[in-house]
Design a protein around this nucleic acid. Structure first.
Lengths: 336, 336
DNA sequence: CTGAAAGCGCTAACAA
DNA sequence: TTGTTAGCGCTTTCAG
């Protein structure tokens, strides 16, 4: 009920004219437009975005695939993106992949079937660009925070290498030598760059790679908890922990509290990222903060630009954003 | 490129047969189906969900409108809902309203235009049910956590009254008499029920309504921070604070730390909800935890059921979920 | 300035 | 088991 035709019938005009009147077409008699608008309102006419999209071959919808919404990292990105898209008249379809490659791919496929105009993707898998062919063109993709192995897409990333190096150097400067690194799956680009940054800083300080102190896992509180227990059991016990993600940090703190290990007296702690609660943690955490808002903004602008330019094949652009070391109270020189 | 027709042409069949073959229709020769499937794959055929939706008059898409994704309360709901919808083959369109009534309404409208099959809504405004008429029927809505004034929709809520009362009674039992309540906008149903619960508990204890100790604001860290400063400046100073939302709590803790007020020695603190970080806060926070996963699950089932049953007008069902008081270490008897 | 006609890509009667 | 036909609701040439 109440389609364009119904409105047309009511005012005794053709559907074409009603369409023009309603969509602000210039060559419509203003009196006609008035009648149409009024009739539309009275009939409770609500345009069918599907039919429109089918006709004009564009949905004004962008897909966003993120691994986890509890992570401030992604929550912030989603918020910024949604705001930016709204300003440009795009809708957002959100998919939560749980960092599962199978989910990841299946979401990519359904987004393609829904003919989204573009996709912002925090990848959990390497993707076959072919999957993105739909409706005769390839859907533009911007990768956010992580990038997939083959660097075939635009990407908006943080400078994980420098961030991890900065955090590690800070600990080294305080005198720490045995620094445990807790991190996520080695398959993620973020994890790899952070571990590389950590190693590079150790190397600068003339220390070996210390690879037995790098604990891989998943970016979850449980994992942070268990890894911390494992670290505490090592002899000699490390004097500092580097937590590579905020959900890990949660578990780290819980394990530390359970074991009654005081921070920073007995153990120093640094963490990647800076969710709201790091600053009110006791003690407040030394961390590496990222310009998430700016990154989200740029990702949105990038995907919108790609959508606008159409299928013009332009080589992918990779942007890296520097973060900033924030020294708070969770780090101190190691005890003699 | 690569539409159903293209596939049909390639294998020398009609579009109808190809459609049937691909959608698992029973009466299709298995050899035919094989040929079709192979051809589809080779051509990189990707069905157009828009065209399908237009034809079958259903999108298998549900809209979710939440105020804020940083709030664990909503993040958890979004996660659960997304998972549940996925199992049932529904997509999720996420909208973040920022608790702004204008946004809220505009999202409702675009969701209706996109002919979502249903909407899960954390309302920030009273909505005119008329807005939801689209395509000849009214889009089913389930309200989550809050409800709009006129109770015209199904709703899945927490028992805010009892939760606030439980938290307040806990403080009263410890001997507190001046309990400040920090809360959000009085326009939200959650806020009102929580304040009512607080008042009821005071009344049980033979205390007056204490309304000058109820501070309304918005559910943000800044607001929690400023309200806490205001509370600390009161004479006589309240001996306990009740924070009615997790983002408020963040600001409360920051203000308390700045003012060097020790919890619970100098001041007790209770908080509504139980995000991950409450337990690792120092001290761990006494709080009222909600069965968010279950609530999300029920909301999903409810909206799916409503969608399935079509337009059958059934009176709205309101469900309230009880939470649970968790006593941790942020509460103690007031100092003499 | 307005209307007629065609068609976006798909599915569902109905017929064969 | 398959094909023909019609049409979901909209926009956009092309004519008038």
């Amino acid at each position: 009920m109440a389609t364009l035709r119904d409105v047309a019938k009511t005012v005794g005009l053709s559907a074409a004219t009603v369409s023009r009147a309603l969509s602000g077409h210039p060559y419509v008699d203003e009196r006609t437009r008035g009648r149409v608008v009024r009739a539309a309102r009275e009939l409770g006419y609500r345009p069918n975005a599907l039919a429109r999209a089918l006709r004009v071959q564009t949905t004004r919808t962008i897909g966003l695939i993120i691994p986890d919404i509890h992570n401030d990292f992604y929550a912030e990105s989603a918020t910024v993106l949604q705001g930016a898209f709204e300003e440009h008249g795009y809708r957002l379809i959100l998919c939560i992949s749980n960092s599962d490659p199978a989910h990841d791919r299946s979401y990519l496929r359904t987004l393609a079937e829904h003919r989204v105009d573009g996709i912002v993707h925090v990848p959990s898998s390497s993707i076959d660009a072919h999957e993105l062919d739909a409706g005769g063109r390839r859907i533009p993709v911007v990768e956010l925070l992580r990038h997939s192995p083959d660097a075939q897409f635009d990407a908006v990333l943080s400078d994980d290498f420098d961030g991890a190096a900065a955090l590690t150097r800070h600990l080294l400067a305080l005198g720490h030598r045995r620094i445990a690194m807790l991190t996520g799956p080695g398959a993620f680009s973020t994890t790899r760059y952070r571990v590389d940054g950590y190693r590079a800083a150790l190397r600068e300080a003339g220390l070996g790679p210390n690879d037995e102190l790098v604990l891989y896992g998943s970016y979850t509180p449980e994992c942070g908890h268990d890894a911390t227990r494992a670290v505490l059991a090592r002899t000699p016990r490390p004097t500092a922990i580097f937590s590579s993600g905020s959900r890990l940090t949660n578990g780290v703190l819980r394990a530390l509290a359970e074991a009654c290990v005081r921070v920073p007296d007995e153990l120093s702690l640094v963490a990647y990222e800076d969710p709201e609660w790091y600053a009110i943690s006791v003690p407040p955490l030394t961390c590496y903060t990222l310009p998430l808002r700016e990154m989200g903004r740029v990702a949105a602008d990038t995907i919108i630009a790609r959508v606008a330019e159409g299928a013009t094949p332009r080589p992918p652009v990779v942007l890296r954003f520097a973060g900033r070391l924030i020294v708070r109270e969770s780090t101190a020189p190691p005890r003699a």
